[in-house]
Design a protein around this nucleic acid. Structure first.
Length: 313
DNA sequence: CGCGTGACGGTTGAC
DNA sequence: TTGTCAACCGTCACG
């Protein structure tokens, strides 16, 4: 795979911040030791990690690019910078740039998908309850009819409606219909309850790499005060009410299997030209170097004429 | 030359 | 506690 191996115990976003500030180093060589920086940042002291791609950029195999880079990619694209130039400038493979921009175009989110874990179960207690109710009302009802009713009644949507076979299994195992005489255990009963929101968030933009189950307590968006979340640039929601589905703002990785609500405009609080906030995050200098090519670019992104507003961190 | 895409090796987290 | 599985990741090479 990559040009060099790495060893590290964890990939906290802090080290990305360090990477982001490192000057370019030649490719095809093992990365610099991180020990001193890690001590400074309080991260673990494992040394040397990361790989270098053909462009000289740093990446960790299997791990998403840091949000700062992802954000930067979208920002540059919005400014009309061609993907190939973004790729070269940020030293990210063009495939990755293409992927991130395509995802952004499709979902409005710059954030990576949910890594690991299992797909949320669709046969939640509520769904089972409704299936049971349908069956009681009409013992001769077919599974596909139940499926249609779940959709029609809004119990499920097209993304989380159980399959006909799942419904049949539920009828067989949990309701014990006479036509389904093979009771079996239902391994997923009372397991993770799917929180059904119209647009479940993917991650907090400053997701950490491990966190407790996120779906238990959706919370409303609090004002984002001073935060030390991993040192990534943060963006206030000032002048902008919390999006209705921004129900997870805890700094944790949230599993979601549909589109995200964490659009760039949710993360970046674009606002009309006004005095810039005092604190500027990383990469601000780079913005000055971008040609003012305010055309709709290849990805159909309208370059923003508003300045991204960053939170103090 | 720019870009989309799939294979690949890797990581992650629920089960 | 450990292993499995299926999701995701970014890079690379190809067309």
């Amino acid at each position: 795979m990559g040009n060099s191996s790495y060893t590290m115990m964890s990939h906290s976003p802090e080290w990305w911040m360090i990477f982001c500030h490192r000057p370019f180093e030649p490719s095809n060589q093992r990365l610099y030791s991180m020990s001193s920086e890690m001590e400074v940042t309080g991260c673990d002291k494992q040394t040397t990690f990361g790989e270098v791609n053909q462009l000289g950029g740093v990446f960790v195999n299997g791990r998403p690019l840091p949000n700062a880079i992802r954000l930067r990619i979208v920002e540059l694209a919005q400014l009309g910078v061609r993907p190939c130039d973004i790729s070269r400038q940020l030293r990210v493979s063009h495939g990755c740039v293409s992927k991130i921009l395509a995802r952004y175009n499709e979902t409005g989110s710059i954030l990576p998908g949910a890594i690991g874990g299992s797909k949320p179960r669709v046969t939640t207690p509520n769904v089972v309850k409704h299936i049971k109710m349908y069956k009681e009302r009409d013992p001769g009802i077919f599974a596909w009819e139940i499926r249609d009713k779940l959709l029609a009644d809004g119990v499920c949507d097209k993304y989380n409606v159980p399959s006909v076979s799942s419904i049949s299994r539920i009828l067989r195992n949990k309701i014990g219909g006479s036509s389904n005489p093979t009771p079996q255990t239902q391994p997923y009963e009372n397991k993770s309850q799917v929180v059904h929101t119209p647009n479940p968030p993917i991650y907090n933009q400053f997701y950490s790499y491990s966190c407790p189950a996120p779906s238990m307590h959706p919370v409303t968006t609090p004002p984002m005060h001073t935060s030390q979340h991993h040192g990534l640039p943060q963006f206030p929601a000032q002048n902008k009410p919390a999006p209705p589905n921004a129900n997870c703002v805890t700094p944790c990785m949230v599993r979601a299997w549909t589109a995200s609500s964490h659009s760039v405009t949710d993360i970046l609080s674009f606002r009309p030209s006004m005095p810039q906030p005092v604190q500027q995050p990383m990469h601000q200098d780079n913005m000055a170097n971008i040609g003012q090519n305010y055309n709709i670019n290849h990805y159909g992104m309208r370059p923003s004429t508003m300045a991204p507003v960053y939170l103090q961190s």
